[in-house]
Simulated assay, not measured.
Amino acid sequence: MHLSISKLQVMVTAFAAILAPINAVQASTIRYENLIDLEKTNFKKQITLPKFNSNLGDLESVLFELSGEVQGSIELENRDAQAAVITGNLAAEISLKKPDNSLLLVSLPTASVTQKLDAYDGSLDFGGTSGVTLTKISNTKKESAFFTVKDDFTPFIGDGSFKLFVEAIGNSKATGAGNLLAGFETYAGATVAVSYTYVKKDEPIRKKVPESQVPVSVFVGLAATMVLTKSKFRLV
């Protein structure tokens, strides 16, 4: 059996190998972030992030990330006449909004704890056998939004920075007993980041590269083409 490779196939393959490095396009990404330290809910804070400098290149996509954090303490007191399993949820709703107040992202971090508490011991102290105080409870939740439509980029391109708003609302609660007292200290914080992915602008035309600096792949491709224009390669 004979395996034959035509001259045309080899020429196409050789020139593809030569041109591949020339046609490759490399995308770059630049990332900025800002944060709001933990503080008691409910609050609304303003943050700023740098706009994309269009002199760097052509913007391909914009990624927003919101990492919301909830932290605090829970006090529980079972006042039922029998033992109960109590669940406490330390929770916050953290929203990221544009300057026009339209919603961009929402993070819902929740830290849950479960405790079995005896029947009410007669002391409303969030301790003893029927109560408990839990501190240093925390959790985070990360959300993201990805934009690739050019019209959506407009507010984020140019000089200077743009504004966003972070709102944090406390949603902590407890369940598990018909007669239950619960107290919460709910703090919230957020880290907001924007990532710009872009293609760099074309570099100025350079002077002709000396022959000694031509990539080896060019010589290999040309040599293969020249040899096989005169003959076929056969494998018996």
Rank of each mutant, 00 (worst) to 15 (best):
N139V: 03
S54R: 12
S144C: 07
V12A: 15
A177F: 01
L90A: 06
V166W: 00
K45Y: 00
K201D: 11
K150M: 08
Q9S: 13
G160P: 09
V227Y: 05
I205N: 03
K208T: 06
L35S: 12
A91Q: 08
A14Q: 03
A119T: 07
V194D: 06
E143I: 00
K116L: 10
S231N: 10
S28N: 15
T135D: 13
Y198P: 00
A91D: 04
A223H: 05
A145S: 13
D159E: 15
Y187F: 13
A145N: 10
T197Y: 01
A177M: 10
E167T: 15
S123G: 06
A145Q: 11
K201F: 00
Q71I: 04
Y32D: 15
K51S: 11
R31T: 15
L117E: 03
S67Y: 01
G127C: 11
G57W: 03
A193V: 04
N101F: 07
S6N: 13
L117D: 03
G189L: 02
A17Y: 02
V214K: 06
N42S: 15
E143V: 06
M11I: 09
S172F: 01
I30G: 09
V199P: 00
G170V: 02
N55P: 07
E93A: 14
S112H: 03
T229M: 14
G158P: 06
L180F: 04
G72K: 01
L35A: 14
G72W: 00
